[in-house]
Design a protein around this nucleic acid. Structure first.
Length: 492
RNA sequence: GCGACGGUCGUCCAGUUUGGUCUAGGACAUCAGAUUGCCAAUCUGGUAACCCGGGUUCAAAUCCCGGCCGUCGCACCA
């Protein structure tokens, strides 16, 4: 069984995530829901993101709407660039990207701005047929990855946002003014985005409705090396990779800038913050890399782009897109809306239209990767022990509270300890089955600790605390438990 | 979206070839009770499934058609 399958099984069995609307046969692909344990780890992941990125860097957070007006996407370029010309075979219904298909077959460039009719005649003049069945093509149509919605009784055209960042761009002016912003300013947002993927696959890895944690750093393009906090990260190791170059180069952030591997300190600073963040999620960053994208691969708005990728059982998985978007977005919104979006940079009292460096994180993929990198099996006696070695601050259950047996007042004592702790910590009380079985259940669910109430507890008011990973036990006084657990949650 | 293969308790699997003792079986998980009492113990009992819709038939988990979902390959992935 592949690791993907193991994580999938664990997710279904333990309520991390599962298909949306699964009791109905017409449930569409690409939609998944988080169950109780999944929500818990997701919320904790987001808390960690706020701590390590938003608060650390003094960013501001907003929460925008998921439905946005058509104009937003005219300005962003999604209405133009997000539509692909497609043709469908009239015989076997295969669908092809018309422009790419023509380029591939004839070698001639197909400009983006050709009309459907012009592409039609290109197909006809070159005598192109369906490569699968030699059937004729129907007329060229447009496929847009955005979900269109109709507002009000007239069905006014609007869209579900395909990326959360557009909210940040349209909010930028007000946030900057009212919150007394200064460049560089990070504005962050957690929220859902929607893309009508042609072929969603692999549960959380390719969704039609998904969570993004995005950060847009607004900056003055003349001051991209003016990063006061750069010293904090100059020794942080960045793992850089470029297709064709072969191996990953591990260099410090400072060195990466000096050697020109990264164009400026601002970009290097945020790549370093991101690396430090992911290290704290428990993902094995020695299996990660920042892949510098070639011009062909980059999004239409990006001038420099790095993908943060992590190795999983499904191959290299893109968790974060880091794009230098220049002034592409603010310029587009300024032109379309006729609003002035320049701000004054106090450094030189000059007006500037800020440039943007973006960290666009896929939350669902990150959570999947945390689960996969945290899961391991080891032989314990004749049995395989399955453990989810989640960090305490990400674990849905921090501690299980188990009476060794229910008689002699041990059950009551354990329930009392549970009720004293449950409002401050994620606890789980369990008295069913043998003690060994309960330990195994907890470690498979990722709980770092188990508290066991035994006969000694009744004499000296101590319990054993068992560590998930080492299976070692220590005795702790009951009144000290809360402090013990608080200490375990510290993020180092 | 195309093609190949597949879809049975929470999970994994048997049953489908050759329609009928299938009133759908097992393992693990889970629940209750008994027993035990520090690393998946034992016993007893219970809950729990044929993806959806249509068709053929005296009879469908099994055959046929359509849809949905999944895996893989192709294509797609701003």
């Amino acid at each position: 069984m592949s690791n993907y399958d193991k994580v999938m099984k664990l997710a279904l069995e333990r309520g991390f995530y599962f298909p949306s609307c699964e009791i109905y046969a017409d449930a569409p692909a690409g939609f998944w829901e988080y169950g109780p344990t999944g929500v818990s780890i997701k919320n904790k992941f987001i808390d960690l993101w706020r701590r390590e990125l938003v608060r650390r860097d003094g960013m501001m957070e907003v929460d925008g709407c998921q439905i946005m007006s058509k104009s937003v996407f005219v300005a962003s370029g999604h209405i133009g660039n997000f539509t692909d010309p497609i043709v469908k075979c009239t015989k076997c219904n295969s669908i092809f990207r018309a422009d790419r298909f023509i380029e591939e077959k004839t070698g001639q460039r197909v400009p983006e701005r050709l009309s459907n009719e012009e592409i039609d005649s290109l197909l006809k003049n070159n005598g192109l047929k369906c490569p699968n069945c030699k059937g004729d093509f129907g007329p060229v149509s447009r496929f847009n990855m955005m979900f269109r919605v109709g507002i009000g009784p007239a069905g006014e055209e609007a869209y579900l946002r395909p990326e959360t960042c557009q909210s940040i761009f349209v909010d930028f002016s007000r946030v900057f003014k009212t919150m007394r912003g200064r460049l560089p300013l990070g504005i962050a947002q957690i929220g859902k985005s929607f893309r009508n993927e042609i072929a969603p696959r692999q549960s959380l890895l390719r969704l039609r409705e998904f969570y993004q944690a995005e950060i847009e750093v607004f900056c003055n393009p003349k001051r991209l090396d003016d990063v006061p906090r750069f010293d904090e990260v100059k020794n942080t190791t960045l793992r850089l990779f470029k297709d064709g170059d072969g191996a990953v180069i591990a260099v410090s952030a400072g060195e990466a800038v000096e050697k020109g591997l990264i164009p400026n300190r601002l970009v290097a600073y945020y790549l370093a913050l991101l690396t430090e963040f992911y290290e704290k999620t428990g993902i094995d960053v020695s299996r990660s890399r920042f892949r510098r994208l070639s011009d062909e691969e980059k999004a239409f708005y990006a001038s420099v782009a790095f993908d943060f990728e992590v190795e999983t059982s499904t191959g290299w998985l893109e968790l974060v897109a880091c794009n230098y978007r220049s002034d592409y977005d603010l310029k587009g919104h300024a032109e379309t809306s006729k609003e002035k979006l320049e701000v004054v940079d106090p450094a030189d009292q000059q007006k500037v239209l800020p440039h943007v460096f973006e960290l666009s994180m896929g939350i669902d993929r990150s959570l999947y990767t945390i689960l996969e990198h945290s899961y391991y099996e080891e032989q314990a006696k004749d049995e395989t022990r399955a453990v989810l070695k989640l960090k305490p601050y990400l674990a849905p259950v921090l501690v299980g509270i188990l009476p060794l047996m229910t008689k002699d007042g041990l059950g009551e004592k354990a329930r009392r300890i549970h009720s004293d702790l449950k409002r401050d910590f994620d606890t789980f009380y369990d008295e069913s089955g043998s003690i060994g079985r309960r330990y195994r259940r907890l470690e498979e669910a990722g709980a770092p600790f188990a508290i066991t109430v035994d006969q000694t507890t009744m004499q000296d008011d101590t319990v054993t605390v068992r560590y998930r990973d080492s299976m070692q036990q220590v005795r702790v006084k009951v009144p000290d438990l809360a402090q013990f657990l608080r200490d375990s949650l510290l993020i180092k």
